[in-house]
Amino acid sequence: MRVGIVVFPGSNCDRDCARAVAEVSGRPAAWIWHKDRDLGGADLVIVPGGFSYGDYLRCGAIARFSPVMEEVVAFARRGGPVIGICNGFQILTEAGLLPGALMRNVGLKFICQDVHLSVGDTGSPLLGGYRPGQVVRMPVAHADGRFHADAETLSRIEGEGRVAFRYCDAEGRVGGPSNPNGSLAAIAGIVSPGGNVLGMMPHPERAAEAILGGTDGRALFVAALSRAA
C-alpha cells in the first residue's frame, strides 16, 4: 500500500500528513512533486494544506493547473481515494472534483482553533472509522474556509448524503455560534458521489497523536489506509 502526498510550492502540512501516515501504517509516505506527471503508483493520494502558490488569485486556483493535478483528477475519476485537507480541499473544488467553493471567512479573520465536528452519514469508506453523528474534535487553521454552493448544489449534496462533517458544539448541536467561518449549512467537509474523494477544512493530521493535543483525526487515516491496502 502506497500513500502519495502532493507537494506544491507553499504546501506546509505535507510533513504533518506524512507523520500521521507513518504513525498509523508504520510505513513512510511518498512525496509527489507538483510537476510530476505520475502518482508513483500511489493507492491513496493526500492533497495537504498550506498556501499553494501563495493563494494568489484564489486559494487553489493556480495549484489546480499543476501538471500533477491532471493525474490526481484521472485517479479520482477511476475511483481512487483522494483526501484534500484545508488548502487541499480548496484545490479539489477548483479542480472540479468536489462541488462548491471555499470563500473568505465571514468574520474576515484567519481562524486557528479546535472545532467540534458532527460526522455525516456518507457511507464513504474514508470515514469508516467514525459513526454517523459522532462528535470529533480537531483544529482548523484558515482564512478562506467558508463553504459556498448554490441552492441546487447544496440540496444535491445533502440529498445524496455527501456531507462528511458539519461544525457543531461539544454536544453535537450543529451550526449557530459553533460554525466558525459562516459555512453554508455549517459544512466543514464533503465527499464525491462515489465517496472516494473527501475534502475537509479541519486538519485530522494535527489531531492524530495524543502529543498533538487530540487523537480524533487518527481514525480517518486508519480507515483511509486500510481501504487503500
Partner: peptide, 8 residues
C-alpha cells in the same frame, strides 16, 4: 478557465 471561478 482561470481568472474567475464560475461557482462564485
Amino acid at each position: 478557465r482561470l481568472l474567475a471561478n464560475p461557482v462564485i
